[in-house]
């Protein structure tokens, strides 16, 4: 048996459960990710993609079902507790970094993800500086000279790239990306996507990436799942995914859900 990085069993999520506004968002979703898989997640607005990600990260308490990361049951762990296993980049570039702290302070915080923080050790370590600069240089955004700059002064793209770095500094068991390039301009979005692919490949990260960009969903990753009405409607991997084209994908979606799919790339053109 291969090593399973993520295992979700019969996951149900409701909003306003027990009221007249009850909405059953995830409906018995099953999903298993082998270690090293890079999965693109697509689906219509409101399909439950973000709900799935928030369940994995612990932002939403699980109503029914079980979640295992690296074979550890994290179903009832808090966000902070399971952070040792998870790297995460949000859609909003403001969300992944602390704006009043410097670049170096933010990165130093991320270096300690999953470890016990001590009171007698400095938060920023001089001996780590060269290492952090080296990592920043890989981003190619000139940030290696700006360790002392407050993150709030940087652009959205720069902040998103740093968040990505922070999420991957301590090899996470699973990397969660929720439309992490959607708020960026096309060029910056491309840079961050390429950086994502590079980091994922180099560190063999098991990754779940939500996107509305069909071309990106096809170009990146070795597996593609489509969410519809709280379940996985399509699950394609490997060679089969390689052959898929954007029109194929849109047709497939229409056939499975009876709806049109939103595609960022199409909206833009």
């Amino acid at each position: 048996m291969t090593n399973q990085a993520l295992e979700i069993k019969r996951l149900h999520q409701y909003f306003n459960r027990g009221t007249s506004n009850e909405r059953h968002i995830l409906r018995g979703l099953d999903l298993t990710l082998d270690s090293g898989e890079f999965v693109a997640v697509i689906g219509g607005n409101g399909a439950g993609k973000s709900t799935l990600m928030n369940s994995i990260a612990g932002n939403l308490p699980v109503d029914e079902g079980q979640i295992l990361i690296n074979q550890e049951d994290v179903t009832y762990e808090s966000v902070a507790q399971r952070a040792r296993l998870i790297g995460r980049v949000f859609q909003d570039p403001q969300m992944g970094t602390a704006p009043l702290l410097t670049v170096e302070e933010n990165l130093s915080l991320a270096m300690l993800r999953g470890q016990r923080r001590k009171i007698l050790t400095p938060g920023v370590k001089r001996r780590q500086r060269a290492f952090l600069q080296e990592k920043l240089a890989l981003l190619n955004l000139g940030l290696e000279d700006r360790l002392g700059a407050e993150i709030g002064l940087l652009s959205g793209g720069q902040r998103q790239a740093i968040t990505l770095l922070m999420a991957t500094l301590q090899n996470p068991a699973i990397l969660l990306l929720d439309e992490h390039t959607a708020a960026l301009d096309p060029e910056t979005s491309q840079i961050v996507m390429n950086l994502t692919a590079k980091l994922v490949a180099e560190q063999h990260l098991t990754t779940l990436m939500i996107t509305h960009n069909m071309a990106a969903a096809l170009q990146f990753g070795n597996r593609l799942i489509m969410l519809d009405h709280g379940k996985i409607a399509v699950d394609i991997r490997g060679a089969e995914k390689e052959k898929l084209t954007v029109p194929d994908l849109l047709a497939l979606f229409k056939q499975r859900s009876g709806q049109e799919l939103t595609d960022d790339a199409m909206l833009l053109s």
Partner: peptide, 15 residues
């Protein structure tokens, strides 16, 4: 300090 600055980010980093 991170908690005061961005609570969501701090939780995601295990704080």
């Amino acid at each position: 300090r991170a908690v005061g600055d961005n609570e969501q980010m701090s939780a995601a980093n295990g704080i």
